[in-house]
Design a protein around this nucleic acid. Structure first.
Lengths: 262, 262
DNA sequence: CGGCATGTTGAATCTAATCAATCCACGTGG
DNA sequence: CCACGTGGATTGATTAGATTCAACATGCCG
């Protein structure tokens, strides 16, 4: 909030700073990218399976998600996309899109031509590596998500999803001490975790009774962060955060580091 | 098999040719990488969570896998690694490993220093993009795997896993018309699909009774490819194969293409 | 041929799904 | 200002898919 730069891409830069050190020059290079700002209403597809995007977009406000549909209509949500995410970077190197991306809420996005990103990378190879890092971190999140779906109970899955959403938003200043936005419906959570809406509803009740966290009208309230983390067995290292951002979501590790530092 | 080049990296090149067009020069550049060949016994870790690799490896013979462990010991297998795979490329850009890689069988690997790959990419940017493509394709496979775990029944999951294993091996010449190696145990399959060994055993029986496929002593026999594909709702497009390799595993698409071509 | 790991089968149990009936919040219009 | 409609959330009863526990069979290796 101290940073008063007016760039539309401020969230994106803030996100990148949680996973790598940026020089002033890096930031300026990113800020001077030619972008088109666009608003998209809730519950609309942004990219569809089979398309060959010519532009990437960066999510500036609102939530979106990746998903696939099975033939009979079953939906699997594979990633929650929050402000600062650049979900389509991979289309630079993998031209055909193999899944869909849609909005949960009304969103504001910055649209950037592949050509311009390409030029940016050529001029600033450091930034190329950085964007790659961003892509690979999402891949790490997929792996963690697979652990949830394969080897966690419904209770643990929801707790883990909440931990991840809170942690990711916390480090970019979108969460308060006690909670964060979580603007998605029961059915969305269910389709993200391989469960049914009914069951998610019941388990949400249990998490509330256990005093860990509650979720209503688009807001997630964390009542007992350490308890929630423990229930989910949440270890944020797969988010590959650095420096202060990491300390912010992982009190234990930061304490360890203090030990070693002495 | 017509290719008699003696390079140890032949499988790797063959694999790359299924996802991109390589020039003779590209191939030579890869073949002239300084590699160390090493053999590793079955059931050993190759890379562990928390490590900072300085070398990448390419799997030349045998099978390996990615996995994570939960605290109480539950294991989630997240990827099957077969000859031609280069599981550790990402360590070039994401230095800390966030999961484990271990061998299923005795394997032969080619070890390459990060430095040398880095030089290769600098001299041959095309190959950099290619390796990236390889990384991103695995990410696509994670997404498909998530659909299995979240929204497929046990029967469909096993069928899908078998389809993927057969397709990936087919395109690099490791499968016959009627089957392919599948050198992993029931417990491994279970931990890959979020099931128990007992249940996998039962469902394998059903797949056999349905006349689709059978699996014993390390070999997968496909009795009815189209039936298996249908049961799994297997659509190989997430493998991002090109040209002949694609046609080989997707009779339907190749038929369609013939239509359009006429 | 023995021994141990792996695989199979059965019975009971449990987690989560399904089906179905409210309930509740919120926005709209009379 | 309140009745009504609607989409989402909750609750209950029942069923199904997968797990667990346990016994037994098979197969592979020395």
């Amino acid at each position: 909030m101290l940073d008063v730069r007016s760039s539309e891409l401020a969230v994106f830069i803030q996100r990148l700073e949680t996973i790598a050190d940026l020089t002033e020059e890096d930031k300026q290079a990113i800020e001077s990218l030619p972008v088109t700002i666009k608003e998209i209403a809730a519950r609309n597809d942004i990219v569809r399976e089979g398309e060959y995007p010519t532009h990437c977009f960066i999510l500036l406000e609102g939530w979106a998600y990746r998903y696939k549909l099975r033939r009979e209509g079953a939906r699997q949500v594979m990633a929650l996309l929050i402000p600062g995410d650049a979900p389509d970077l991979q289309s630079l190197y993998l031209p055909v899109t193999d899944h869909n991306v849609a909005t949960f809420t009304d969103v504001k996005v910055a649209i950037i031509a592949h050509r311009d990103i390409h030029d940016l990378i050529v001029c600033h190879p450091r930034l190329g590596v950085l964007l790659l890092r961003e892509i690979l971190i999402e891949s790490a999140a997929f792996r963690e998500w697979m652990v949830s779906m394969g080897r966690r109970t419904a209770y643990e899955r929801i707790a883990h999803l909440w931990c991840e959403a809170y942690a990711r938003q916390k480090v970019i200043g979108l969460a308060t001490e006690s909670g964060c936005p979580f603007p998605i419906k029961l059915l969305d959570i269910a389709d993200a975790l391989g469960l049914t809406m009914v069951h998610v509803s019941r388990i949400k009740g249990e998490l509330k009774n256990a005093g860990l966290a509650t979720h209503r009208s688009g807001w997630l309230t964390i009542r007992d962060w350490e308890g929630l983390r423990a229930a989910a067995e949440f270890d944020p290292s797969y988010l590959h955060l650095i420096g202060q951002a990491r300390d912010e979501v992982d009190s234990k590790i930061s304490a360890d580091e203090n030990l070693y530092a002495t």
